[in-house]
Amino acid sequence: MIKVDIQTQDFDISIELAWMRQATDNCGAIASFVGLVRGKDASNIVDFIELEHYPVMAEKSITHMAEMAMQRWPLTAVRVIHRVGRLPAGAQIVLVLTASEHRKAAFAACEFVMDYLKAEAPFWKKEILPAGEHWVEAKASDELAKQAWLIE
């Protein structure tokens, strides 16, 4: 089972974990990743970020990543929430939950989905600093992390 939401409101990981437990059969492990807004980037204080996305494409691309993960590992469920809009330092941005009978598949799939999401899902971050604002550049290391899954 795959469930993907793009939303402005915050999420509660305990509610999502409860959903995973009832949605999956014979689940023995759930791995989770939560991404947060850092309050500092290099030496700059970040007050908040603004997250823009390409509606429809964002949902479709994350769903496709979850489908790839389910083909690659014996998963029972993948849950992804990505927030958009204005988010203050410390706020939750993204949640990835992966459920499986055993932990190794859950851990690997969680990292796989996050690596693909960082490299390909159409979201863009703008940092709002006391001195002004700027778009966050894509990192080459994110593209390399995704490509590493192609040769494993």
Binding site: Y54, I93, V94, A119, W124, A138
Partner: peptide
């Protein structure tokens, strides 16, 4: 057709 810079979400 959508045009955009490299992505930076997550």
């Amino acid at each position: 057709v959508g045009f955009f810079p490299p992505v930076s979400g997550g």
